[in-house]
Design a protein around this nucleic acid. Structure first.
Lengths: 110, 110
DNA sequence: GGAATATATGTCTGATTTGACATAATCGCA
DNA sequence: TGCGATTATGTCAAATCAGACATATATTCC
């Protein structure tokens, strides 16, 4: 995980576990956070591909605009559950999800 | 989704949405439930591969035996979040997850 | 059969996540 | 610049999910 990404996470409320240290993640915690980032980013991409505003999208997934904004921002108050259900509601298949998740990195060149 | 699987789900508390009908799932709901099943099943496989009892495993992922049993049973009181964090705790990588999720079907011949 | 081990099911209480709402910030365009 | 549309951030009560515990049901071995 590169530095830009770390910084982004800290701003989003990620302290994780109870590590006092500066985002010192265990491998599985890191994988978890990476995973969420991939899905957040995919979510925004998919929404924009469909030319939906956050408000329209919120209606589609039966949530609210504020929640959508937070989904896309990778906010720590959003669960993987919600991210995934939203992607599915957008029409993604499980295979699509697998592709999103399995990719190495996804355009966060640092 | 085949019939055996449906039956299994109904027993696990899956009514979803507020459909009165007999497990009449929309495509995205179906994909969501399928996804959970894949992860549940993988979880059991991975645990057994490591020769861990549910109790040992529970300790490893900082949960309880009852919760582990429910994870593996695909119980509706378990979130995707917990399933995925547990798989990661077991040592799975995001790529591993992608493989679990992307597979077509996985041995539920009916 | 019975004991030991493993897994399943039900139910509490507390913690987290939810959608909703208010409101602030940012963008696009005349 | 100002206005409308879009996106971001903060807060809340209600709903969901968490670990823990009790207890029931397998499963395995003698």
């Amino acid at each position: 995980m590169n530095e830009a990404k770390k910084k982004r996470l800290i701003e989003r409320g990620w302290k994780i576990g109870s590590v006092e240290e500066f985002l010192q993640l265990s491998p599985d915690e890191a994988a978890y956070v990476e995973l969420r980032l991939k899905l957040s980013d995919s979510l925004r991409v998919q929404r924009q591909k469909k030319n939906l505003t956050q408000v329209e999208f919120a209606k589609l997934v039966k949530s609210s605009q504020s929640r959508v904004a937070k989904m896309e921002a990778g906010d720590s108050s959003i669960s993987l559950d919600l991210l995934i259900r939203s992607l599915l509601a957008l029409g993604a298949s499980n295979r699509d999800l697998a592709n999103m998740i399995g990719q190495d990195e996804h355009g966060t060149a640092g």
